[in-house]
Design a protein around this nucleic acid. Sequence first.
DNA 1: AAGAGGATGAACT
DNA 2: GTTCATCCTCTTG
Length: 205
Amino acid sequence: MKLDSDFYLNADVLEVSKQLLGKFLVTSIEGVVTSGMIVETEAYRGPDDRACHAFNNRRTPRTEMMYAPGGVAYVYLCYGIHHLFNVVTGPVDMAHVVLIRAVEPVDNIPAMLSRRKMEKIATRLTAGPGVLSQAFGITTELNGSPLTGSNPAIWIEDRSIHIPKDQIQSSPRIGVESAGESALWDWRFTVGHSKWVSGPKVRNN
DNA sequence: AAGAGGATGAACT
DNA sequence: GTTCATCCTCTTG
């Protein structure tokens, strides 16, 4: 049930972004295992996507990890505060990533509450890319961490939940207004009925 | 060497 | 709706 590298090597990052909805993000950090069902993703596609750090195939120390073969984590620090977790996809030298923006918490909610310094469960536990990383213990130390193999710190599972196509909504990505025409593309994907989706309500397709 | 600006979230008015 | 915390990365000189 753990997704293997074949899944991540898919060269169609929009397809992978949709396939990841309903899958389960799992981390095992210092022996603490937490999991949640992915309900919101965004695709970032290196060469032609102005909103992507690797636009125009630009290579810097930070973006280098995006060119790795699919199946590793790309984690970077945003606004000096938030650690954003992305799944690297596609074959080597193809800078495609999927930002995981929100999950529905499932296993070991007490550990997530503790990491978030929260008392009671609420959507702000894991709805949003920064807060979900915090709930799952993901930091930039895990940049480049493999999602496959024998003992990964982060991995994604298929637990046989299928999200029907008509329940998947698409909308423009959050926070990329200055990315020119790329800002208009509907590359954000959400599970329509989930209350664990971040940000403003989205329209139907 | 310096400065601008983020794929956010929380706490305000 | 607005403000701002906070620091790394990249560009420019």
